[in-house]
Amino acid sequence: MEKNNEVGATIAQKYTANVGRRNVLKMTATGIAALGVGAVATGPAAARTRLTLTEKWDKTFPKSDKVDHKKVTFKNRYGITLAGDLYQPKGSTGKLAALAVGGPFGAVKEQSSGLYAQTMAERGFLTLAFDPSYTGESSGEPRNVTSPDISTEDFSAAVDYLGQLPIVDRERIGAIGICGWGGFVLNAAAADKRIKAVMASTMYDISRVSARGYNDSVTLEQRTKTLEQLSRQRWQDAENGKPAYQPPYNKDLPDSAPQFMVDYHDYYMTPRGYHPRAVNSGNAWTQTNPLSFMNAPILSYIREISPRPVLFVHGEKAHSRYFSETAYAAAAEPKELMIIPGASHVDLYDQMDKIPFDKLTAFFKQHLA
């Protein structure tokens, strides 16, 4: 643990010193964590006044011949129209168990969440992967901004949509969250009792890492400095009539970048996982995006998921492993933590030999029976 804390305290300092970014990135580990926690990148996407859905198959994974796929839209409680991909097992009949799938933080449905959704549809579930509010093909202005409340709401909105489909059994709806959306799905399940079983894969607690840095290494003085800078940035944004965006950093990694940043780059900025609509793939959150996370803990009520079951899956070698371990300890039974030998954080985004789909299938078939 001492070694982990030392690594967490120095990651941002080493990276920031080499990149030489302005403002928030010059601050502390909090700054880097708040940028998206590996879900960093770019300038604003083009403004949109209406939803335009791409009909071509532009996923980062091959299309399965075992499922039917279609684009769908639905609204959340705040009136934002979300875009999703609905996957249905070919030839399925009767009422199906359904899964809402979201994440990673800063990704789009054409990446990891879509892969999980399509694979679980091959295994008999109706699944919905969706773009979060203000990102991807979903609506919302300005672009590339979020908050813990809205991200949690988007999961419940997906449950709203699934529960209205005539082929779905409303009493058999579960949810999967990946990376930062692993934290949001736990928060959603704590409040939304319609979610009957929940699984968090390679989980990040975005609120915790934004507020405290990696391994909780940020001091009160560092946190205060970051909040001071972000607070004053609001005046600049208000005067300009639009938000300033963080600079991309997945594009240009320094030689001294920590391994987990190299892993993110290898996924988001190479043909393996690159998608032009993803915040992480050379785009960026607004500079003030961290504000809403820095004083809004999302896992305060994790025990209230019980008596519904929770499954945590994390890589043995993931820098983020402590998030799942802490959440697992705080959750009530029934719960399970599965550690994948040799796996890194990003391995559980798309490595089919590392993601335990047999375990996921058994878990949801048992608890959504």
Rank of each mutant, 00 (worst) to 15 (best):
V218K: 04
P148R: 03
L291G: 02
G31N: 04
I11P: 04
N240P: 04
Y268Q: 07
A189K: 08
E110N: 11
G36K: 06
L99R: 00
P271L: 05
R308S: 05
Y214E: 13
A158W: 00
T286G: 08
F130I: 05
R123Q: 02
S256N: 14
R172N: 06
L220V: 14
T361W: 06
W285R: 08
A98L: 06
K90I: 09
S344C: 09
F130S: 04
R77W: 09
G124H: 00
N215M: 15
H319P: 09
A107W: 01
Y214R: 14
F323A: 12
A117C: 02
A200Q: 01
A158R: 00
Q222I: 11
V7R: 14
Y245H: 07
S217V: 10
G43R: 08
K242G: 12
L360C: 12
I173Y: 01
W181R: 09
F184V: 01
Q233H: 08
A211R: 10
P62L: 07
I340N: 01
T270S: 03
T93S: 12
V159E: 01
Q118T: 06
T152G: 09
T152N: 10
H367G: 05
A190I: 04
A329V: 09
L25Y: 14
Q13G: 08
F363S: 05
Y301L: 14
Y87W: 10
G94K: 04
K95D: 02
T54I: 10
E228F: 11
R123D: 02
S147I: 01
Q118F: 01
K26A: 14
N187S: 15
V279K: 00
P309H: 04
V145H: 08
K90V: 11
R21A: 14
T16P: 05
A238I: 12
A188K: 03
I32H: 10
Y267Q: 05
D237Q: 09
D353R: 03
T42R: 13
T49N: 13
A39Y: 07
E171H: 14
P307S: 03
T60K: 05
N23C: 12
V145N: 10
A107Y: 00
D85G: 03
P132F: 15
N280G: 15
S344N: 14
A189H: 05
E336D: 09
N240V: 10
P243L: 08
K75M: 11
F130K: 02
